[in-house]
Design a protein around this nucleic acid. Structure first.
Lengths: 154, 154
DNA sequence: AGTGACCTTTACGTCAACGTCAATGTTGCG
DNA sequence: CGCAACATTGACGTTGACGTAAAGGTCACT
């Protein structure tokens, strides 16, 4: 069937940095504060990252840059790294359907929570946009009023 | 006509803090980095804030908390304080229509710029939401697949 | 086996955005 | 006028999110 002994190409930190747009330092820092654990280490102690690590790092960067969350908030929002490692292992080892289902359900809940949090933030932005549009119309009102005054004067 | 010798009630810093949800320290800091200049000072040197100051501070807080902008970015986005003081004065003194029109046009441009910036940020959030929804459907796909397997098995 | 490019940990430095004293002055009420 | 509550300007401290330099190992290649 499907080959799940995935022989993924593992990347070293600088390649990951180039790929994600983060710095090596930032990546190490994220590990330090528990945002991710690289998939493996080399015989020497080089950090080795797999595709899932890259995905996670890209997501972290988006949450930081685009959504403007703090790393602490991102930690809350993301599955904690301990559980992620556990599930990564469990999904590879077990093919017991109940187990797989539980893991997937777990991921589903978290993803829905993430969507809710993102929507909240977007809604607040929408409110701010609406307010700004209100100010714009207010200004336009004054401008029209001014023009009316000029017209009446001529 | 309209009474423009507005005798506004001026607030002291702690009242402003209570009103806006900022701390006194933060408000002083915003002044320090040039985000706003209180409308007046008392005989002693107490800072005194008017309604326009409150509005500006509330906007700053929203930009910081809800939109996640840095104070530097907020400084860019807001009319710089020097111009604001100048315009505040000019709008009160001059009733020359050309002058008033210029000031209003100026405010209009800035407000439109603010709206554009906010929309950019909202669009990036929308993209992230769409991506998260994609992940959700991906998970659901796996779940359905799993259920199908179970069903076929029974 | 040697070399250059990359990696490791450790540790101190930095910048933003304030918090927190300390020493002193101001307001307004009885 | 006396006093409590609030204000002022320094100035130093703190936290988050890294930057940067030092002292040394590792990898891949010749």
């Amino acid at each position: 069937m499907t080959n799940d002994t995935t022989d993924q190409p593992l990347l070293r930190i600088q390649e990951v940095a180039a790929e994600t747009g983060l710095t090596s330092r930032a990546i190490r820092y994220y590990e330090e504060i528990g945002l991710l654990e690289p998939a493996a280490r080399s015989d020497g102690a080089y950090r080795l990252f797999d595709a899932s690590d890259l995905e996670r790092l890209r997501f972290i960067k988006e949450l930081r840059d685009d959504a403007g969350f703090s790393l602490a908030q991102i930690g809350q929002l993301l599955e904690d790294e301990v559980a992620r490692q556990r599930n990564r292992e469990r999904l590879r080892t077990t093919s017991e359907p109940g187990e797989r289902r539980a893991i997937l359900q777990d991921a589903r809940i978290r993803t829905e929570q993430q969507i809710a949090t993102l929507r909240e933030k977007r809604d607040r932005l929408d409110t701010m946009i609406a307010e700004a549009e209100g100010r714009l119309e207010h200004i336009d009102g004054h401008l029209v009023e001014l023009d009316a005054g000029l017209e009446a004067h001529s």
